[in-house]
Amino acid sequence: MKKYLFYVLSFFTLFVYAQDRQLSLAADVWPPFTDIDGEKSILSDLVQEALGRMKINSTIETMEFAKIFIEINSGRFDGSPALWISDEREKYYFFSKPYFYNQLILVGKKGSDVSAASFDELSGKKIGVINNYAYGDFDKNQEVEVVSDLSNQKNLENLLSDKIDYMLVDALLIQYMLTYQLNDVTEFLAIGKKPLLVKSSHLALGKHVQNAKIILEHFDEKIKEMIADESYNRILELNWIKADVDGDGKMELVLGGNKAGTSAPQNIYGLMHDNSYKEKNPPQRYYVDGKLYETWDNIPNNYKLDLVVDSTPSIEDTYIRLDFLD
C-alpha cells in the first residue's frame, strides 16, 4: 500500500511539475548523438521523446562541452541529455538509468593492427579521444598516451597525418560511415571488431532541479516503453537492438518494424547492457511485434521478409559524415 501511495504521489508531483515549466538542457556538438537543430541527434531525440511522453517540454542548446557543466552549475540550465557518469559528476548531478551504451572501437590507418582486446596491448601508442569526455582510466595503463582534441573530425585528421596511432570511435558512428562512406573507410581506415571501452549514456539533471529524482525515475519507465513499442529502434534507425524487454535480467533481440530479414541477425548493436558484447553465448530470444519467441525458427514466416537497405543519405545523414584528407 505504501509503495502504491508513493507512486501516486510521485506521479501527481510530476504532473504538477510538468505544468509549471520545461527542462532546459545543454549538449555539445557530438554527431550523430547530439547536435544543433536540424542535424541528426539521436540521443537528443530519444530524450525529448521520452520527456514529451511525460508531458514535460524540453529545449536543448548546444555549446562547447566544457561550458556545459559551468552553465548547469550556475542554474542557467537544468541538465544535459547525454552524459557519461564519473565520480566527480555524481557530486553535482542526478543520473537516469543507462538508456544507451556508447561502444568505442579502435580505429587506425589502413594496415594498422586493430586487434587489441584491451589497452594493455597498446602500451606506447597514442590514442585520440575527445576533450573532457569521461573515458575512465584506460585499464590503468600508464603507458598509453592519450591525446585529446575537439572532435572525431579532428582526431581523424590527426590519425591520417600520423600525429596519433589510433582513435576511439563509437560503433554506431562507424555503422553510419560504413553505410554512407564505404569507399573512404575501406581506403583509409582499419577498424577493430569489438569495443575496447563501453560507456553508458544518461539523462543528467543538476541537484538544484526540483523533483529531479522523480523526473528521472519516470524517464526510465518511458525509455522501457519506447523499446517495447519500437520507437527506440526507429529513432536510432536500427532494425535490431539488444535489450532486456521483460526485466528478467537476460537480453533479447528486439525488432523494430515488421521485417526481420530472411536469416537470424548476426551484427546486433547491444544498447542496454554494458558487458553484453563480451558474452560468449549471445541471446537467442526474439521480441517481435510485441511478442517473445524463444528461437529464430519460432518467429512466424510473415516477418521473415527481405530487408531493403537504403544507402542514400538523407539531408540529416550528410551532417554526420567525416571529411577525409586528400
Results as ranks from 00 to 15, higher is better:
320 I>N: 09
158 N>M: 10
191 I>A: 04
56 I>S: 08
192 G>I: 01
11 F>W: 11
180 Y>E: 01
307 L>H: 06
26 A>G: 10
170 D>M: 01
213 K>H: 05
67 K>N: 14
203 L>G: 09
310 D>F: 09
38 G>C: 04
60 I>D: 04
51 L>V: 03
3 K>E: 13
136 G>P: 15
155 N>W: 03
180 Y>V: 05
138 F>D: 10
156 L>M: 12
282 P>T: 11
69 F>I: 08
5 L>F: 13
114 V>Y: 05
60 I>T: 13
39 E>W: 02
177 M>D: 02
127 I>D: 01
321 R>C: 02
108 G>I: 08
262 T>W: 00
142 Q>G: 01
318 T>R: 15
303 Y>N: 05
250 K>L: 12
304 K>G: 11
85 I>T: 11
246 D>M: 05
257 G>H: 06
264 A>I: 07
202 H>A: 08
157 E>I: 05
253 L>S: 08
284 Q>V: 13
117 A>T: 14
136 G>C: 10
193 K>F: 00
128 G>F: 03
136 G>Q: 10
85 I>G: 03
259 K>S: 12
86 S>I: 11
129 V>T: 15
196 L>I: 06
287 Y>R: 09
98 P>W: 01
55 K>Y: 10
221 E>Y: 08
196 L>K: 03
229 D>K: 07
49 E>A: 11
204 A>G: 09
62 T>I: 14
109 K>F: 01
289 D>P: 11
128 G>H: 09
106 L>K: 05
93 Y>F: 15
301 N>D: 15
66 A>F: 08
163 K>T: 01
193 K>V: 05
157 E>A: 06
280 K>I: 04
45 D>V: 08
24 S>L: 13
86 S>L: 09
67 K>M: 06
219 F>Y: 10
199 K>Q: 13
290 G>N: 06
38 G>I: 08
199 K>N: 12
197 L>Y: 02
172 L>K: 13
11 F>E: 05
94 F>A: 05
121 E>H: 11
199 K>H: 04
313 P>T: 09
237 E>N: 15
78 D>I: 02
325 L>H: 07
126 K>W: 03
52 G>A: 10
256 G>S: 07
184 D>A: 06
313 P>E: 07
257 G>M: 07
3 K>G: 02
239 N>G: 03
315 I>P: 00
188 F>T: 11
188 F>S: 13
84 W>N: 11
306 D>V: 10
197 L>D: 04
287 Y>L: 06
293 Y>F: 15
138 F>K: 08
242 K>D: 12
208 H>R: 09
177 M>T: 03
99 Y>C: 02
138 F>H: 10
294 E>Q: 14
273 H>P: 00
134 A>N: 14
27 A>M: 05
224 K>E: 12
325 L>V: 12
8 V>W: 02
50 A>L: 07
259 K>I: 06
325 L>S: 10
318 T>V: 13
97 K>Q: 14
73 N>C: 00
33 F>Q: 11
189 L>D: 05
132 N>C: 02
28 D>I: 01
186 T>V: 11
181 Q>F: 12
237 E>M: 04
142 Q>Y: 00
252 E>C: 10
